[in-house]
Computed example of a mutant assay.
Amino acid sequence: MNTKRTWTRPEITAVIGLLTSASGIAVLWAAGLEFPFYPPPGMLIMTAGALAFTLMRPRLRYAALVPALLGLSGVVGFVMEAIIGGGIGLANLTGDAGTAPIFGQALQQLGVVIAGVAGVVAIRSRAARDSRVSQPA
Rank of each mutant, 00 (worst) to 15 (best):
G85L: 05
G85Q: 09
F78E: 01
V76G: 08
G98K: 12
G89M: 13
P101R: 11
Q108H: 15
V79A: 12
A82S: 13
A100I: 08
G104C: 06
D96E: 12
V112K: 00
G85P: 01
A106Y: 02
V75T: 13
G71P: 06
A100E: 13
L72W: 09
V75N: 04
A68D: 11
V75C: 11
V75P: 04
V113G: 02
A97D: 05
I102W: 01
V112Y: 02
A82E: 06
S73I: 15
G77W: 03
A68Q: 13
L90G: 10
V76S: 12
V75A: 14
V75E: 00
G71N: 05
I88C: 01
I88V: 12
L70P: 05
G86S: 01
L110H: 00
A106W: 06
F103L: 14
F103Q: 06
G85T: 05
V76E: 06
V112E: 00
G77I: 03
A106H: 04
L93S: 00
Q109L: 14
V112H: 00
V113H: 01
A91D: 10
S73W: 14
V79D: 05
E81Q: 15
L110E: 00
V113P: 00
L69W: 14
T94H: 04
I102Q: 11
G71Y: 03
D96R: 13
V76L: 15
I114Y: 01
A100W: 10
G85E: 07
D96P: 03
G77Y: 07
F78D: 02
A82Y: 08
P101E: 07
L110C: 00
